[in-house]
């Protein structure tokens, strides 16, 4: 009743762990059997290893959090050697999140990943925490279109483009990525925000700006998913503040094929297990027999 086919990949359920909130799964595998999950998106990877940002990296806000991790990661080659074999043995779909600076970096990363057992590539054109690349491709639709079209030529896996809520026009952006050959879209990445340390009279973060996530962004995410689902025909994966099974159903009703869980993993390390467990029970109590029955019903 909860199975989903995402770009030809069969998921046990629509619940995927979001990039940057689940590492490579190792830490959470100590808490529960990760084969319960629909899928896992890896921490954002770049061709070369990155140390990430200096200074404070997290700051709580009302029902949300700002992060400025800055794509700290071991690099694609080290990921393929050290982490991917573990992930492929988990019994859940593996979605590899790829970021970078120049298009050549992305292409080289994708060429390496093409040869692996990864299920889907999630193209990160929406990280607000790095100066070059990242969100630079995710603001203007024309830039994103040209970029995705180039990546599409090289990517032999299903290609899911992760969109930024900071895009100039989210539906125009979604249509541009779909037209350029994206197989699916995921949205929203974090909202660009900031915080001030009033005692120090300076921004909390060295980078000044940081990415806002958590329940505080959910209504915005839901609205954008709803709009994008009306604008494109490819599957849309919804994320942004989803914390329980009821939130999952809201996004599915807004038209999402499936969803990602991010910040909720920090609040409760069992979030993935609890949400996948609660979803069929909640559907049952609402008389929903399968997700297709309610998808895009609004």
């Amino acid at each position: 009743m909860v199975r989903v086919n995402l770009c030809g990949i069969e998921l046990k359920n629509p619940v995927i762990m979001a990039s940057g909130t689940f590492g490579f799964g190792r830490e959470y595998s100590a808490f529960y059997d990760l084969s319960k999950l629909g899928g896992i998106c890896t921490k954002g990877l770049t061709l070369e290893p990155r140390e990430g940002n200096g200074g404070r990296r997290v700051h709580e806000t009302p029902m949300g959090m700002l992060n400025s991790v800055g794509l700290q990661n071991p690099g694609v080659a080290a990921f393929i050697e050290r982490e991917l074999p573990f992930m492929l043995g988990l019994g859940t779909a593996v979605i590899v999140n790829v970021g970078g600076n120049e298009p050549e970096d992305y292409i080289e990363s994708i060429n390496l990943l093409n040869k692996t057992g990864a299920d889907i590539i999630e193209l990160n054109i929406s990280c607000p925490n790095v100066k070059k690349g990242g969100m630079a491709y995710g603001i203007k639709s024309k830039v994103a279109h040209d970029f995705v079209r180039e990546i599409r030529k090289h990517c032999k896996k299903p290609l899911m483009v992760k969109l930024s809520p900071n895009a100039e026009d989210i539906t125009d952006m979604a249509a541009a990525c779909a037209d350029a050959g994206a197989d699916a879209l995921s949205l929203i990445n974090t909202l660009k925000g900031m915080a001030v340390d009033i005692a120090a009279r300076k921004p909390v973060f060295d980078n000044v700006f940081a990415g806002l996530s958590g329940p505080a962004v959910k209504p915005v995410a839901l609205r954008m998913v709803y709009e994008v689902c009306k604008a494109v025909k490819i599957p849309v994966v919804g994320l942004g503040g989803i914390s329980n099974a009821a939130d999952v159903l809201e996004f599915i009703m807004a038209g999402a094929a499936c969803v990602q869980i991010g910040t909720a993993n920090f609040v409760n390390p069992m979030a993935g297990a609890e949400i996948t467990g609660e979803l069929p029970e909640l559907m049952d109590s609402l008389g929903i027999k399968n997700l297709d029955e309610i998808r895009g019903v609004l």
């Binding site: 909130t21 590492g23 959470y28 990430g52 990296r57 997290v58 992060n67 991790v69 700290q72 920090f266």
Partner: peptide, 21 residues
């Protein structure tokens, strides 16, 4: 350090060391 996940996944609480973050 300020932490988010507390279990090693989010990389919000890194310390700089001679072995990297």
């Amino acid at each position: 350090r300020y932490m988010a996940c507390g279990v090693g996944a989010c990389l919000c609480c890194t310390c700089k060391t001679v072995n990297g973050n």
